[in-house]
């Protein structure tokens, strides 16, 4: 692809990649803006949820997914963790000159497939081509609109001592898959990104455990970062148990070789939930009954300790501080 003026032909070509991929039965896509029927939206609930996120990932294609799928599910999940039913997405694409049109087509089709799977419609979008070096291959920004059903009240500040901390499955798959794909690490690994839309699972949990305090997707910075945000926002301490932390044997081995802490690895299909004691079992059962929550675990509890502190009870019996990282994982041992 050539950048800039490339002429109308080029612009049309690119637009065509997306328009044809996202083609819907309605003529909305031809207008400059998407238009919604408010009454139809209101039928889903009583509050609108609105979120946006930019996606940059190297490589664009990796085991278990690609940047397009990530861009759809990422925004769908950002809506879903607020308890919203995701409905519409927009998609803005920045393309580095030189990207192959086939690759772009693959991404667009992947986005379309992801949107279908998630039951959302991509209703508007934009594309720009920039000169070489001005971006890295392809950046995608998706914005999502959803509706929160009446009665659903999730708040990160609402965690109380005694609440259970749950995750819906094996941690670190996405981060490990990306690293493995990126560096040609010569690892015979089958690890795939866990990239998945979570609103169905969340819906099921909220039905079974309506008093759930908060839900967060554990993307960048992993569960360690989410737990720190939760502890901080709610003014509680959170302790998790190393033995109860669900990890794929392969990811464990991967982290061992690379010297990484899996708690900080990114996920794209994992949520962390804080659930009051009375509903922990119900939430667990509901998750385990869902295909995306088969390996759900109760990993720890909130307690009234040092506010904002997250610790992990290690296999050796010690309690290690799991801090929010300022930068990358850096060795500290002197």
């Amino acid at each position: 692809l050539a950048h800039g003026g490339g002429g109308k032909a080029m612009k049309d070509l690119i637009d065509d990649v997306f328009v044809s991929a996202f083609a819907t039965d309605t003529p909305r896509a031809l207008e400059d803006q998407a238009r919604f029927d408010l009454a139809a939206l209101a039928a889903h609930g009583d509050r609108l949820a609105f979120t946006t996120d930019s996606f940059v990932v190297d490589p664009l294609f990796f085991p278990g997914g690609d940047i397009g799928k990530l861009a759809v599910f990422g925004t769908v999940n950002d809506l879903a963790v607020g308890g919203a039913k995701p409905l519409y997405l927009s998609c803005a694409v920045v393309i580095e000159e030189g990207l192959k049109i086939e690759e772009l087509r693959r991404v667009a089709q992947s986005m379309a497939a992801a949107a279908r799977r998630a039951g959302v419609t991509i209703v508007t979008g934009d594309t720009k081509v920039v000169q070489r070096g001005a971006c890295d291959k392809l950046f995608i920004t998706t914005t999502g609109v959803g509706v929160i059903p009446a009665g659903v009240e999730l708040a990160i500040g609402g965690i109380r001592p005694g609440d259970g901390i749950l995750v819906n499955g094996l941690l670190g798959d996405h981060g490990a898959a990306i690293l493995a794909a990126r560096g040609d690490l010569a690892l015979e690994t089958e690890i795939e990104s866990d990239c998945a839309p979570l609103h169905g699972l969340i819906d099921a949990v909220l039905k079974a455990a309506p008093a759930t305090r908060t839900i967060r997707d554990a993307t960048r910075g992993g569960i360690a970062t989410v737990l720190n945000e939760m502890a901080e926002a709610s003014g509680v301490a959170i302790e998790i148990d190393e033995a109860a932390t669900p990890l794929r044997e392969e990811v464990r081995g991967f982290c061992e070789i690379l010297g990484l802490d899996p708690l900080y690895l990114a996920n794209e299909g994992k949520i962390v939930l804080a659930v009051p004691p009375a509903e922990i079992q119900a939430a667990l059962a509901a998750m385990r009954a869902h295909p995306l929550g088969a390996c759900a675990m109760l990993v720890g509890h909130a307690h009234a300790g040092e506010q904002g502190r997250v610790t992990i009870q290690t296999a050796f019996g010690g309690k290690r501080i799991v801090d929010m990282l300022v930068g990358e994982q850096l060795p500290r041992i002197c």
């Binding site: 690293l179 990126r182 560096g183 040609d184 690490l185 690892l187 690379l258 990484l260 990358e328 994982q329």
Partner: peptide
């Protein structure tokens, strides 16, 4: 040892800071 992996992380600078 998994030498190829080590070579790759050293070369790619994946959690292998020079010290």
């Amino acid at each position: 040892k998994p030498r190829a992996t080590l070579d790759a992380i050293i070369k790619g600078g994946v959690n292998s800071p020079p010290a």
